[in-house]
Design a protein around this nucleic acid. Structure first.
Length: 659
DNA sequence: GACGGTTCAAGCGT
DNA sequence: CACGCTTGAACCGT
């Protein structure tokens, strides 16, 4: 539990699993039929621009010494010509700037002029416009680098980013839910719809300034399910293109500057070794992503070269295949931190066409790469004992009581406390709860629950979950279909009662004592687990408190559900639906003897997990189940955190409960 | 089901 | 302002 870490906690994911070496396929070239089309070199400008371009011609010739040269056939490549192509591409880019009357500055310190450092207080990052106002729809041109972001600001930024992503997800999931009835119509792209809605409301982040370097509030390892989401938070501004940059026409010295790149393996000549990337420039491809032309040093390619020249770092986002993402095409985007471009050359790609290549080095001293953590989690899912098997105390502390096993992992000390408790997969309520709640009334639906369903009406004429089981809107309490309903077990209104879906792990951490994380990526809005224990009435609680046992008070959890699915920023005059008020909860959970995985979750005031009360097996509003949902996409192996609603100085007491 | 092709996208730079 | 470009995503057919 670390209340001073705004970014939740970065659990120490197991180190030492080597990053897979993704070497390019070494296919033998057929040198005799290689045909290379050259751009027309006749119109090369003859005047010597004499710009001292700091062209490193060494790597040009190095590239040319590769076995791309052939000795036979019509397409003989010679080094001089390739160098000429390179030089030509380069001068074209510069000439364009000269025509624009932009000064070409050769002082590498121009970096200092091109980029204005901005401190957190100067940024108007926090000023969300009032609902309905359309503002700042286009990107701004000023290039800045965020500096001196203090801890309170970081926490603030993190919160703004989290809320923004929550709105994005809410709108997206609701858009998807609206479309569910239409089978004949082509489905609306919910990812695009959500971003468009937010853009028209001025809810995209970081559009007043173009940020080079880290984006405040976004941590290395954060996972995004859609390209558009990257645009919404300002991490990468291009919906499709891989290089985002400030165009020369807008920069202060007339030169384009790259800000971020997405590495997703779309170019055959890319090489990704984790800390070192050989990134291909863009262009030269046909509609089927085949390389059919030479690339030119313009647009993003030129921006990359200029960024290298000035030593300006770029953000790297990796597109990674991820099995099991329900709604997406099986790809997620992970922010992997800042890289420096250290080399740039013009090479002949596998296709035989000229390709710009950029060598990127990851800057030292950053948090562990998100894509590496994804890889490790993948290996752990495949073989739970593949890393430090001696530290795996148990493969399932629930001893088969949950649908999936819960690992217990400790590579810090010899403590194995979680083994000493009886595992309780569901909260146990006093018997009177079931009797005093009147007749448990269920719905009469057959096959599936639809509009007329009684449970649907009880939830305020809403289904609480999307078709894929994501929480749509936080409510004081949610009514799931239960044992007295006639609908089948696979009914969409039965989510939490089915129990755990993700492979969780209780792990030992130096910062938080025990913590909980998942081996799976958990989507925002997904159910995680119940917070169980033995339910005690107030009278029983008072007695137990005197005997010094560990009690959890459900009414203390902060009401984060109010934020989830709240569309007040999107819909003009949006009023949160008026829910039937529920009486203040007056019970406690005794976790001193029987507990489940939930009580090892750490506290944070910027949590990634929230509480939603749910009823299904009885109708007593005073005693709902305490269900935990993901408030954001939680990457694998990142520690869960929950706002216990305690002041920081009470934390020591909270730690006692969890340890 | 895994693919590859097709279609419809959206923002941005020019 | 319209157009062209782009390492998307859903859908359809094989």
């Amino acid at each position: 539990m670390n209340p001073h870490n705004p970014n939740q906690t970065f659990p120490s994911a197991p180190p030492g699993i080597p990053f897979p070496m993704l070497t390019p396929k070494q296919e033998p070239r057929d040198e005799t039929i290689q045909e290379i089309q050259y751009p027309n070199l006749e119109n090369l400008p003859n005047q010597n621009l004499n710009l001292n371009l700091s062209l490193n011609l060494d790597f040009v010739s190095q590239a040319l010494e590769q076995p791309t040269t052939t000795t036979a056939g019509a397409g003989t490549v010679d080094a001089a010509r390739m160098a000429e192509i390179f030089r030509r591409s380069f001068t074209e880019g510069l000439q364009r700037q000269i025509q624009n009357n932009d000064a070409v500055d050769e002082n590498p310190n121009a970096n200092a002029r091109a980029i204005v450092p901005v401190s957190a207080s100067e940024s108007n990052y926090n000023n969300a416009p009032p609902a309905g106002e359309v503002v700042n729809v286009r990107k701004h041109k000023e290039l800045v680098r965020m500096t001196d972001v203090g801890l309170p600001d970081q926490r603030q930024f993190r919160d703004v980013v989290r809320r923004t992503r929550m709105v994005y997800d809410s709108v997206r999931v609701l858009a998807m839910a609206e479309e569910e009835g239409n089978f004949n119509v082509r489905r609306v792209r919910s990812d695009l719809k959500a971003s468009a809605t937010m853009r028209s409301r001025g809810l995209w982040l970081n559009r007043d300034k173009r940020i080079v370097g880290a984006i405040p509030g976004i941590c290395i390892g954060d996972v995004f399910l859609y390209r558009m989401e990257l645009c919404v938070v300002g991490l990468h501004g291009q919906p499709q293109a891989g290089i985002d940059y400030l165009p020369g026409s807008m920069s202060s010295n007339g030169e384009p500057i790259a800000t971020s790149v997405i590495v997703s393996g779309g170019y055959e000549d890319d090489v990704d070794e984790g800390d070192v990337i050989i990134y291909s420039g863009h262009g030269g491809q046909d509609k089927n992503s085949r390389q059919v032309f030479h690339q030119k040093l313009e647009g993003g390619n030129l921006a990359m070269e200029r960024s290298m020249h000035y030593g300006i770092e770029v953000r790297v986002i990796r597109g990674v295949r991820y099995e099991g993402t329900s709604s997406t095409s099986g790809k997620v985007y992970v922010y992997d931190g800042l890289y420096r471009i250290i080399e740039c050359w013009f090479d002949v790609g596998k296709s035989g066409f000229g390709v710009f290549k950029f060598k990127l080095w990851r800057i030292d001293g950053q948090a562990k790469m998100g894509s590496l953590i994804l890889k490790e989690a993948f290996l752990l899912r495949r073989d739970p004992l593949c890393y430090k098997p001696m530290c795996v105390i148990s493969l399932d502390i629930s001893k088969g009581m949950e649908r999936v096993g819960i690992r217990l992992f400790n590579d810090i000390d010899r403590c194995n406390d979680p083994m000493c408790f009886e595992y309780l997969p569901r909260a146990t309520f006093p018997h009177f709860v079931f009797h005093e709640s009147g007749n448990a009334t269920g719905c009469q639906c057959e096959g599936f629950c639809g509009e007329g369903c009684f449970c649907f009406i009880k939830n305020g004429n809403d289904f609480p979950y999307s078709q894929s089981g994501l929480l749509l809107k936080g409510k004081p309490v949610i009514f799931e279909c239960g044992p007295s309903c006639s609908c089948p077990p696979h009914c969409r209104n039965r989510v939490t009662q089915k129990g755990l879906k993700h492979r969780l792990e209780v792990f030992r951490s130096r910062e938080t004592g025990w913590g909980v994380r998942s081996l799976d990526l958990i989507q925002a809005g997904a159910f995680i687990c119940e917070y169980t224990g033995v339910v005690l009435t107030r009278e029983q609680s008072e007695i137990m408190t005197m005997s010094g046992d560990s009690l959890i008070y459900p009414n203390r959890f902060s009401n984060r559900w109010t934020e989830w699915g709240n569309l007040s920023l999107i819909q003009d005059g949006y009023v949160p639906p008026s829910y039937p008020s529920i009486p203040p909860l007056d019970f406690s959970l005794d976790v001193s003897r029987m507990r489940n995985v939930a009580c090892y979750i750490s506290h944070s005031s910027t949590p990634n997990v929230m509480v939603q009360f749910v009823l299904y097996d009885h109708n007593n509003l005073m005693f709902p189940h305490i269900m935990l949902f993901a408030m954001e996409n939680i990457p694998p192996l990142r520690e869960f955190s929950l706002d216990y609603g305690v002041a920081d100085d009470e934390l020591t007491g909270k730690l006692v409960i969890c340890n």
